[in-house]
């Protein structure tokens, strides 16, 4: 029986290709971190566009961005707030370390969603009728949830790993998990509505 580790041990990346550059843990330049966030966001937008492939319309592009908004909002607004709180309580996690963790979280979510783009387009185009559309939407919601949770896990593990020994106590964990919880709420607030809109309200 394999045991479940919430935070996998960092392993040396066997591949130095694109996906490796996007998600492996390493000290990266802040500009690279920003690039990771933007690429993750672009991938999530592509997934949103794929989810709207069954009802193509120019105004649906905004809804497609609605699917991608939670990871971006989490990376740009929630993580600075976590940094302020951690610094306020003197938990010793630097701003760059949090930014790097956020970048890896967003890019992790983006990579999973990017992999699902062809499959989503296929389901959107092959599922006929309102019931079929509902089924496709349910699958998309599951996919976004899974991708989002993986991204949050990557973020939380990186921040907790960056906390100095002796200060990664219960309060740090609580702050990180609390921020991740807010991320989940944000996703739960935005994503179902965006997916519903992308399917034209199942009409």
């Amino acid at each position: 029986m394999e045991s479940f580790e919430p935070c996998p041990h960092p392993t040396p990346a066997p591949d130095d290709g694109f996906s490796s550059r996007m998600v492996t843990r390493r000290d990266i330049h802040p500009a690279r971190a920003l690039l990771r966030i933007l690429t993750g966001f672009a991938f999530a937008c592509a997934f949103g566009a794929a989810a709207g492939a069954g009802h193509p319309a120019p105004e649906r592009l905004v809804d497609a961005m609605g699917v991608a908004a939670p990871p971006l909002a989490f990376g740009l607004f929630f993580t600075p707030s976590l940094w302020v709180l951690l610094t306020l309580f003197d938990r010793g996690v630097g701003a760059f370390e949090i930014a790097r963790a956020a970048a890896r979280g967003v890019s992790t979510t983006g990579m999973v969603l990017a992999g699902l783009v062809p499959l989503t387009v296929f389901f959107e185009l092959s599922a006929g009728g309102p019931d079929g559309q509902r089924f496709a939407a349910a699958l998309e919601l599951c996919a976004v949830t899974f991708a989002g949770l993986l991204g949050l896990r990557a973020f939380a593990c990186d921040v907790l790993e960056a906390a100095p020994a002796g200060r990664a106590g219960a309060s740090t964990t609580a702050l990180v998990l609390g921020t991740c919880g807010l991320g989940v709420l944000l996703g739960a607030h935005l994503v179902p509505g965006a997916i519903l809109a992308l399917h034209g309200g199942f009409r």
Partner: peptide, 22 residues
């Protein structure tokens, strides 16, 4: 053709990135 990208993306998310060809 539809599931290979899923495997590729998910591997990256599980911190085991491999080239797409693999």
């Amino acid at each position: 053709a539809l599931s290979v990208p899923v495997l590729h993306g998910a591997r990256a998310a599980f911190e085991r990135p491999e080239p797409f060809a693999q």
